[in-house]
């Protein structure tokens, strides 16, 4: 095990009220595996990942509870309680981050090469020449042709797919143990999406990195993930090995997501969607957050928050209806 997140509770204290963004998120990550985090937009995927690297603005964000133990060669660290030095060492060095929108996530007035090499010089203490050499290798490695010329280019001179490759190069530059990819393909068109997925998988194998792949699309998960964590309104509702999840989904929300996928074997594409909308995060959760939209809802669902129950090997579900 390389990462173990336990009962992470995070709130935003805003003018409009307290946003209950994460209500007890727990999951673990094995070295080298890919964990997909799935959930509709606003379910807290990004917030959960950014809180691990302390990237959220404080205030409004406040971590109320929980721990996130990162097992390093140098012993274990709680990512939620790091010192400044530890944080700098882990960010980029141990955990790389690929952001959703590469255009806004890259500095518009700094060359792409410099944006990759600066972490090598600042972080690993390489000389400028060493960092340059390594950056050219990285650019080639992520499949950017003409690396030497491209080093001197600026982000706006790249296509969307190429920019996302640059983000990947930045994330893997310092040989991290974990890479968090936050919807890296959402802004791209389908063929480019597939290329980025392939590239990530290939790099992951070569460099034996554990990947947390965030997406709101269960469709792409099958090809990438070893395990899947399904999030709903700031709570994890189901976590399972990927095959088991597709064959045997237990949570009504997961079933709904799978039913909503367009299927190859249906001649007429019938898009099923789950009725209703996610709950207002300004209300503190007092019962199952899916109760409003659930077809299997019972009395108990309105009274208690369901805890995860193991229903199969490494398959946990938080639901009273399907124990």
């Amino acid at each position: 095990m390389i990462l173990e997140v336990k009962n992470l509770v995070l709130r935003f204290y805003t003018f409009d009220g307290v946003i209950h963004a994460l209500n007890g998120v727990s999951f673990d990550l094995e070295a080298g595996e890919t964990l997909a985090i799935v959930g509709e937009s606003g379910s807290g995927k990004t917030v959960a990942m950014m809180s691990l690297l302390n990237l959220l603005p404080v205030p409004p964000a406040k971590i109320e509870q929980g721990e996130a133990i990162f097992y390093d060669d140098k012993g274990q660290v709680d990512l939620l309680r790091t010192t400044k030095q530890e944080r700098c060492r882990i960010r980029g060095g141990r955990i790389g981050y690929i952001f959703q929108d590469a255009l806004s996530a890259l500095n518009p007035v700094m060359t792409v090469g410099r944006q990759i090499s600066e972490s090598l010089t600042e972080h690993l203490g390489m000389t400028y020449a060493e960092a340059y050499k390594r950056t050219i290798e990285l650019l080639k490695h992520v499949g950017i042709p003409g690396a030497k010329q491209r080093y001197k280019n600026y982000p706006h001179q790249f296509s969307g797919g190429m920019r996302q490759r640059v983000m990947i190069a930045i994330a893997i530059a310092c040989n991290p143990k974990i890479v968090i990819a936050d919807e890296p393909t959402t802004a791209l068109d389908v063929t480019v999406q597939a290329q980025i997925v392939d590239l990530t998988r290939q790099l992951q194998k070569e460099l034996s990195i554990a990947v947390i792949w965030i997406t709101h699309d269960l469709g792409v998960v099958a090809g990438i993930a070893d395990r899947v964590l399904v999030m709903y309104a700031g709570s994890p509702v189901e976590i399972s090995p990927v095959d088991d999840l597709y064959e045997n989904p237990r949570h009504p929300y997961t079933k709904g997501l799978l039913a909503a996928l367009p299927r190859m074997d249906q001649s007429v594409r019938k898009l099923v969607s789950i009725e209703g909308a996610p709950p207002d995060l300004l209300e503190p959760p007092r019962h199952c957050q899916f109760a409003w939209r659930c077809s299997l809802v019972s009395e108990r669902c309105w009274q208690e928050i369901p805890l995860p129950v193991e229903t199969g090997p490494r398959h946990f579900v938080s639901c009273f209806a399907d124990p």
Partner: peptide
């Protein structure tokens, strides 16, 4: 992009 810079450990 400033958040990205932080995420690099600078």
């Amino acid at each position: 992009y400033v958040r990205t810079a932080y995420s690099k450990g600078l």
